[in-house]
Each structure stands twice: as structure tokens, then as C-alpha cells.
Design a protein around this nucleic acid. Structure first.
Lengths: 207, 207
DNA sequence: TCTATCTTTGACCAAATGGTTAAACCAATT
DNA sequence: AATTGGTTTAACCATTTGGTCAAAGATAGA
């Protein structure tokens, strides 16, 4: 019975994830989520009172798939070169498995930037960890030592994340314009791109 | 009267752009568009029969802001280095003026990839011009001549566009995490980033 | 001025949608 | 077997929403 409960809640969550991530908050329909979960619509409201609360949960989970892994890599003791390689490898794999998430997150954050503040408040450790300050310190320290070229941390981070996220978020455009809409070619492109991005970034900061 | 008509139609278009680009197809409300245009809701349907037709028009215009300029630059007679610099300069300016468009286009294309096919069919010249094939040919020719390093055209193009588009599409994240939500710092970042991206790309393909 | 055509509006409609409720169901406890 | 508590459902509700329509206004030509 407790088992059954967890099961229903989980079925709702899975269905909600799928529908919200593909159609967004405004495009999603409670009825569709209920159908996909194989339950009555009223049950949705029984477990998660409102559409918004259900959405928030989905968003939080989507977001939290990425943050802890990022923290782990960024706060480890490795040198910058290794961190970046590891980061690219890890996140391109992760995004290939969850291709809807970047556009979902970006889009909903655009619709309501407040969400980010709420998440920060809820997971204080994210803010407490001062992720950005720490990685900035390490990079500038290695710049001082001559291990890497002088570079602005914010620009570098934007580059790394952008090169990873963009081809997945903009898939319809890239697949449509560069690969005549051939999914296989696009997938192959993504696969080989991992090493390309690594080399690209590493080369750009090698002294 | 003809003047008045154009005026009304234009007022509707302007309002529709604003609402659709900020809230997307599913989030936009016809009533809000009507209010913003200062007219009766029935007039929307008088000029553009349905919500979808109105949306299609808005999307097409948004998309066509970018394509012709891209064509012009790409098909010009300049060498690759110059083209890329010009492209980055132009598009970062353009996106700064229309920051909602990338996420709007990406998001709606994700919702319905068919739109892209429709646009190609409507503007046959885009497809006829074989934009990608031509720029690919030029790049590989310059690679052969040793003017630029060997590089895959698709990866290079993805990099250029990604580095331009990402920081604007992902503004809430970047501004939130890297600039403590300070809009002025973010704007300054975007401004200095233009030269940074140029150098970054140019350096990566310089022999 | 009368008429025909185009533009604009207020009132209205049917369908969709998020949400509620009362009753049925079901498993465990006594 | 009866009771209790959480779970699930069918039916229902109020509101929102895209869209329609008939009538009123405006405009230009005859």
C-alpha cells in the first residue's frame, strides 16, 4: 500500500516530467499528464495540489540533475585542464540523455526568472559554496602560474557551457540546416563533437 | 483610410510580436494582444483569421530578420576571417536589440519542427542558395590553401553561432549566477564579449 | 444625399481547462 | 465482521479562451 502510493506518485512525476519538458508550463495539460500516468485527473490534485506546484517540482528535479554534478567537478582538486575535459565529457553525455532539459530550463527561466532565486533559497548550499568565486580563483591562480593563458573566467565559462548546450537546444535548426533533417547524421555529429569541443577549449587556453 | 488600415494591421503585428515572443504560442492570449494593440479582440480575427495564422506571421518575421543578413554576409566575396568577424559583430548587435528572438525561435521550433520546413518551402531561395554548401566549399578551399587550420565546417559554424546565441538565450542563468542579477554588469559583459568571441574564434582557426 | 463597402465593436458561444467534491474502494486493525 | 484511514474515481463547476455574429460607424463614389 505504501508501495502502491510511492508507485502512483512516481508515475505522476514521470508523466509530468515528460509532458512539462516537451510542452512547457503553459502548453502542458493536466489531463494529458493524468492520461500518460494512467490515472484520474483528480489524483493529480490529490498528490500535488495545483498545476504550478507540480510544475515546480518537475523543474526543481530537472535543475538538480545538473547542479550537484557541476559542483562535484568544479570543487574537486583537479587542475583546470582536467576539470574542463571532465566537465565537457560529463555534460555532453548527460544532455544527450536529457535533451529536452536545456530548452525547458532556459525557457521557463525566461518566463519567470524568479524561479532561480527560489531554488537558490531552497538549496542554500549552492549559494554558500560560492561555486563561481572558487573556480574563478583557481583559474586566475593557474593563469598567474603560467599554466594557462590569461583569460576572463566568465567568458571562458560561457564558452564552455554554450558550446555544450547550444547544439542540443538548437537541434531542430542544426539538424534541419546542416544535416537535411537526418537524425542519424545529427547524432553522429553530437558524438564526435565531444572531442572537438574539448580540443577547441583546451587549445584556446593553452599557453 | 488605407492609411488607417495599415496602421491597425501594424499595431496588431507589433502587439502580437511582443506578446508571442515573451510568452510563446501557448502562453500568449489573444485578449492580451488586443489590449496591447488598443483594439477589440474581434478585430484580430478580422485581420488574421486565427491565433495560429497570427503566430505564423510573427514567427516568419522573426526568423526572416536573421536569414537575409546571414545570406548576405555568407555569400559575399570576403575571405573567411573577415566573414566571421563581420558575422559576429553583426549578429551580436542584432541579438542585443532582439534578445527574445533566439529563445522564441528555438522554443517554438522545438514544439513544432515542421515550421522550419514550411519556411524553407515558402522562401525557396533559402534552400536554392545552398548556403551551407557554399560556405563549406569556401572554408575547405581556404583550408587547402593553408589560410586557415583544417577544421570541420559544421563544428565551426555551431561554435560561432552557439557562442553568440547562448549568452543571450541563457541570460537569466548567466546574469543570475555570474553577476548576482545585476543587469548593468550583464550588459557590460555582453558588450566586451563581442571582441572576445571574435578573438576566440579567429585564434582557433589561425594556422 | 444615398448607397455600397470596408472597418470596428459589444455581446455572445462552445469548448477546453484547472480544480473540487462526494462517494466508492481497499487494505489493515480491532 | 465492523471500523478506520488513506486512495481513487466519476461527475461536476467556474473560469478562461479562441472564435463568431449582427449591428453600428466610417468612408468613398455615384
Amino acid at each position: 500500500m505504501v508501495d502502491q502510493q510511492k508507485d502512483t506518485e512516481q508515475k505522476i512525476m514521470d508523466a509530468a516530467k515528460e509532458v512539462f519538458q516537451q510542452k512547457g508550463m503553459t502548453g502542458a495539460r493536466m489531463q494529458e499528464i493524468a492520461d500518460k500516468a494512467g490515472i484520474n485527473k483528480a489524483l493529480l490534485h490529490y498528490y500535488y495540489r495545483t498545476k504550478e506546484k507540480l510544475f515546480d517540482k518537475v523543474f526543481e528535479i530537472a535543475f538538480s540533475i545538473f547542479i550537484p554534478r557541476m559542483q562535484e567537478i568544479m570543487l574537486s582538486e583537479k587542475p583546470v585542464f582536467e576539470k574542463i575535459e571532465f566537465f565537457i565529457e560529463n555534460y555532453m553525455d548527460l544532455l544527450t540523455k536529457h535533451p529536452y532539459i536545456p530548452i525547458f530550463v532556459i525557457n521557463e527561466l525566461n518566463r519567470n526568472p524568479q524561479i532561480l532565486v527560489n531554488i537558490f533559497e531552497k538549496n542554500i548550499d549552492i549559494k554558500e559554496n560560492k561555486l563561481f568565486e572558487k573556480i574563478d580563483a583557481q583559474i586566475q591562480a593557474e593563469v598567474q602560474k603560467g599554466i594557462i593563458k590569461p583569460i576572463d573566467t566568465r567568458n571562458l565559462m560561457t564558452n564552455v557551457i554554450g558550446l555544450i548546450v547550444f547544439p542540443i537546444a538548437a537541434r531542430p535548426i542544426i539538424q534541419g540546416i546542416m544535416f537535411e533533417n537526418d537524425k542519424k547524421q545529427y547524432d553522429a555529429f553530437l558524438k564526435q563533437r565531444k572531442d572537438f569541443v574539448k580540443d577547441f577549449i583546451i587549445n584556446s587556453i593553452k599557453p
